[in-house]
Design a protein around this nucleic acid. Structure first.
Lengths: 193, 193
DNA sequence: AAAAAACATTGACATAAATCAATGTTTTTC
DNA sequence: GAAAAACATTGATTTATGTCAATGTTTTTT
């Protein structure tokens, strides 16, 4: 159940067996069926969530009720409304399951205690945040500096598994485009797969 | 010279005078004249830089040689090509001074030593990264879910000092638009100031 | 296996933004 | 203080993307 979580953790900071046992006491497994919510706008994000299996999407709703996908999370990724989690204030994001999922939850309390108790957890979180920031920065930079065609190509290179696994109209939403436009980008650049 | 840096540091993690002295040994001041480079694409980002006074911009150049601004940094903000800094690989960003600046530099080596030597520095960096990530996430979400008019309005609310201090065509670049379009957004929404 | 739902593609048209160009304004430089 | 440079605005036009609608395909449900 916790294999992937600790695999990823150990890639960043190597834990002893005892430390691993300690961390595990703070984790809670959770299964989620396709289409079920992990978090709804307005609720407080009580947990940060690691995806052991399955896939999630995070999105905001605009005034017309349309979904704008802000992030995907596949196996090995961490997901949550970070602002809501850190400040324990109402979430602006919705998160739900694209597929049946096996998740690992870390509550705010568990997170705070681990930060205090285990220096390696602190290091892990710092590295996680740093990596997440660099990835988001790359995405933002592409967004303002590349043509749509290049942005889509960059996406297929950077996250081939997302592009393969997720319906196209969600990729379009993630890029901030209409599904029709993405379809035309694909047909003109022959990037079908 | 280091007032603002330690003010911001102490807001996140409170340092004793001794700790402050220790940290200070790892810092290097630097002055930069308007239009001078702090970092050029292809160089290695050797330092993370804190702005005590002045303003910086970071940008990428596209194939047509046009500037796309990815970030501004005013007093109290931290700036750098994080990916280049962390991995000590060639930078993709250019960073230069919008105004005469007083900066504080932390070299990669200093950064690594401080992380090892001073747990509070680790905490500081974790918090800095977390805050930066949340801010960028907000920006990205706005980018894909709001109309241009609303995006500009959100920007003026979130960073009024940037909008005041920076030429409009750079704000346009930061938003990924032409200067003409931003000018029209402003005239139709009466958001002149 | 059949029916329904979700999804992708394509075309016609409307709309928004980019581009090009001209003008006026503000800021910088000398 | 004058000249030059940088900047902002506005109009006309082109281009890219969104929207609406129809069709065909794939996936899910029963």
């Amino acid at each position: 159940m916790y294999e992937l979580f600790f695999k990823k953790f150990n890639e960043k900071v190597l834990l002893t067996t005892e430390e691993q046992d300690l961390v595990q006491q703070y984790l809670a497994p959770k299964k989620l069926r396709k289409k079920q919510y992990l978090l709804q706008e307005g609720d407080i994000c009580k947990n940060i969530c690691f995806v052991e299996k399955g896939a999630l999407k995070a999105y905001v709703l605009d005034d017309t009720g349309e979904e704008h996908i802000t992030a995907f999370a596949l196996e090995g990724w961490t997901m949550g409304d970070l602002a809501s989690f850190m400040k324990q204030e109402p979430a602006t994001l919705n998160i739900d399951a694209l597929e049946d999922c096996e998740l690992i939850l870390i509550s705010k309390q568990a997170h705070d205690e681990l930060l205090e108790r285990l220096p390696k957890y602190q290091i892990y979180i710092r590295m996680l945040m740093t990596d997440a920031y660099m990835a988001l920065q790359k995405r933002t930079t592409n967004m303002i500096s590349l043509s749509l065609d290049d942005r889509y190509f960059a996406l297929t290179q950077m996250y081939p598994n997302i592009v393969q696994r997720v319906p196209q109209h969600m990729i379009a939403s993630f890029m901030g485009l209409s599904p029709e436009t993405l379809s035309r980008i694909r047909s003109r650049s022959g990037t079908k797969r």
